Measured scan of single mutants.
Amino acid sequence: HDTTVHINGLRIEVHGASEEILKWIEEAARRGVEAEEIKRWVEEALK
Rank of each mutant, 00 (worst) to 15 (best):
H1V: 13
H1K: 12
H1P: 13
H1Q: 12
H1A: 12
D2F: 15
D2H: 15
D2I: 15
D2Q: 15
D2W: 15
D2E: 13
D2P: 15
D2L: 15
D2M: 15
T3M: 12
T3H: 14
T3E: 12
T4N: 08
T4V: 15
V5H: 04
V5P: 03
V5R: 04
V5S: 04
V5N: 03
V5E: 03
H6P: 03
H6S: 12
H6T: 15
H6W: 10
H6N: 14
I7F: 06
I7N: 02
I7H: 03
I7T: 02
I7L: 05
N8R: 03
N8K: 04
N8Q: 08
N8G: 14
L10A: 05
L10F: 07
R11W: 11
I12W: 08
I12R: 00
I12V: 06
I12N: 01
I12Y: 05
I12A: 01
I12G: 01
E13T: 09
E13I: 11
E13D: 14
E13Q: 08
E13S: 11
V14M: 07
V14F: 10
V14N: 01
V14Y: 07
V14I: 13
V14E: 01
H15V: 13
H15Y: 14
H15W: 15
H15M: 11
H15F: 15
A17F: 07
A17D: 03
A17P: 04
A17R: 03
A17W: 07
S18Y: 06
S18A: 06
S18H: 06
S18M: 05
S18W: 06
S18G: 08
E19D: 11
E19G: 08
E19A: 13
E19F: 14
E19Q: 13
E20H: 10
E20M: 13
E20W: 15
E20R: 10
I21A: 01
I21N: 00
I21H: 02
I21Y: 02
I21T: 03
L22E: 01
L22I: 10
L22M: 12
L22S: 01
L22A: 02
K23V: 08
K23Y: 07
K23N: 06
W24Q: 02
W24K: 02
W24L: 04
I25T: 00
E26F: 15
E26I: 15
E26G: 07
E27Y: 10
E27W: 13
E27A: 10
A28D: 00
A28V: 03
A28N: 02
A29V: 15
A29D: 05
A29F: 15
A29K: 10
A29R: 13
R30K: 13
R30F: 12
R30L: 14
R30S: 12
R30M: 13
R30P: 02
R30G: 10
R30H: 08
R31V: 07
R31Y: 10
R31N: 12
G32F: 06
V33Q: 04
V33Y: 09
V33D: 05
E34K: 12
E34H: 12
E34F: 09
E34M: 09
E34P: 15
A35H: 06
A35D: 04
E36M: 11
E36H: 11
E36D: 10
E36F: 13
E37M: 10
E37V: 12
E37W: 13
I38G: 00
I38C: 01
K39R: 13
K39H: 05
K39I: 12
K39F: 11
R40W: 05
R40H: 07
R40D: 02
R40K: 12
R40T: 06
W41R: 05
V42Q: 00
V42S: 00
V42W: 02
E43M: 15
E43I: 14
E43V: 12
E44W: 15
E44Q: 14
A45K: 09
A45C: 09
A45T: 09
A45M: 12
A45F: 11
L46A: 03
L46Q: 04
K47W: 08
K47M: 12
K47L: 10
K47N: 10
K47C: 07
K47T: 09
